[in-house]
């Protein structure tokens, strides 16, 4: 039973990482931007929920509005910070996002508080009940459900819709796609909107687990998502999702099975395993080696 319980944990945690990793990968595949400010797409919706809570609105309203905030924040980031450097080197793009991330974090510190603020979650979300002998929390089911629905919806969008196909084409060869008459701005905006949407879904789930907001609450999840994306093979959407789940499983497995006296080393061991996997496969588990054009 213990194992079943852990698998449930792993799926719900891995699902959150997968949502974040997918958002990172979708933007990366088109712009070659590693968006460190993706963490703020968790933090901002979470603070929106904090605001809704202060206003005394019901949880469902929080959730809906936080999604809106996530999408708008992602679009604004693209418009304000990333458009001016769109054609720059990946290093420039990365540092731009790092600067943006620091700015948003310090503004939240200044304008709201450098301390953690509690956002009480509704009881039903944290209630647990028994399913097939397993203790299941509603938030875990929600996480799994949201992840499945998002993955299916994203797959359908990418495979079936005109814009989805345009985005896949842009990931293959952005310049050629533009020459085919597809608006670069629209493709990029859509990619950011999707990444903001996925990040705000992850924010709702993370907030339900931790119950507080903090200016740098997005940092650790986004670092993990970043790791998941690289592990899966940067730019590969399927790889990002798999990388997210893999990381969730590794983390839960280490926490569950490491002996008590080395439990503190969980994080270190997790990153050591990731480093080792990348050492073996520098392009990620599902990444393609770059084609040589000499």
């Amino acid at each position: 039973m213990e194992t079943g319980q852990q698998i449930l944990n792993a799926i719900s945690l891995g699902g959150i990482y997968a949502l974040l990793a997918l958002g990172l990968a979708i933007v990366f595949s088109i712009l070659h931007l590693i968006n460190f400010a993706h963490g703020e797409l968790i933090t901002l919706p979470a603070y929106a929920m904090y605001g809704m809570y202060l206003l005394g609105l019901p949880w469902v309203a929080f959730a809906a509005i936080s999604i809106l905030v996530g999408v708008v924040a992602a679009l604004a980031m693209e418009r304000i910070a990333f458009r001016p450097v769109r054609d720059a080197s990946p290093a420039t793009l990365l540092l731009t996002s790092l600067g943006l991330s620091i700015i948003i974090q310090s503004l939240l510190q200044m304008l709201i508080s450098p301390r953690e603020r509690a956002v009480p979650q509704p009881d039903w979300l944290l209630d647990s009940f028994e399913v097939a002998g397993l203790r299941v929390q509603a938030v875990q089911l929600l996480a799994i459900g949201v992840t499945i629905v998002s993955l299916v919806a994203l797959t359908l969008i990418m495979q079936r819709t005109r814009m989805g196909i345009a985005m896949r084409a842009a990931a293959e060869d952005f310049d050629a796609t533009r020459l085919m008459g597809i608006s670069a701005n629209r493709v990029i905006a859509l990619a950011f909107a999707i990444s903001g949407l996925l990040a705000s879904l992850a924010a709702i789930l993370l907030l339900a687990r931790r119950g507080t907001v903090h200016p740098s609450m997005g940092l650790l999840p986004v670092l993990k998502a970043f790791v998941a994306t690289v592990l899966g093979g940067f730019g590969s959407l399927a790889g990002a999702a798999v990388g997210g789940f893999l990381l969730g499983f590794l983390e839960v497995a280490l926490r569950a099975w490491l002996p008590q006296d080395v439990a503190g080393f969980t994080e270190g061991i997790l990153f050591a395993i990731v480093g080792f996997l990348l050492f073996l496969r520098p392009n990620g588990l599902f990444g393609r080696a770059e084609v040589v054009r000499a």
């Binding site: 910070a81 001016p84 450097v85 720059a88 420039t92 540092l95 731009t96 790092l98 600067g99 943006l100 991330s101 620091i102 700015i103 948003i104 974090q105 310090s106």
Partner: peptide, 9 residues
């Protein structure tokens, strides 16, 4: 943050 962003742009 502002320094990094400004330099990059």
């Amino acid at each position: 943050g502002v320094v990094i962003l400004a330099v990059m742009i």
